[in-house]
Amino acid sequence: MLERLFIVTDQPISVEEVTKKVVRPEAGAVSSFIGTVREYTRGRRTLSLTYEAYRSMAEKQLEKIGEEISRQWPDAKTAITHRTGHLAISEIAVVIAVSTPHRKDAFWASEYAIERIKQIVPIWKKEHWEDGEQWIGNQLETEVYPEGKPKGVESHD
């Protein structure tokens, strides 16, 4: 069975399961990046988060990130799982696993992946605070797209 490498799920993520997908004989390094729910952001206490995704497109975009990584690091294998739904502090929101023949590429590629997730994958988080809640990245914390779309969406090189 063909394993799905790029997943958006409402179920808890197993770091080991994601990591296992990229382990292979050619690899001398496997990096796993684990993104977790942080309690304090700029001094404000978060009680929990809700992630919402445009799931079908988000999985396609994760796949694109995998393709971008393969172009830049041809020997890399990447797997990414992102969680949706209601998450408590320290729960795992995202796991990125990259395997490469040598360690530096694995570190670089996984950093590249998390940066790209924050740019092009249609997933949103809502922070729940003691005194309110807000979707992050909404028009109040304005981040506009001067080019009409996220940066680098069209770069195929």
Binding site: V121, N138, P150
Partner: peptide
């Protein structure tokens, strides 16, 4: 805006039957 799950430009055409998504700045990760 994404049209049929691909990011689109302001001048791109949308046709009947297309699925359009309104995408606020993303905040995953």
């Amino acid at each position: 805006v994404a049209v049929n799950e691909e990011y689109a430009d302001p001048e791109d055409l949308i046709q009947s039957g297309d699925t359009v998504a309104l995408i606020p700045p993303v905040s995953g990760g």
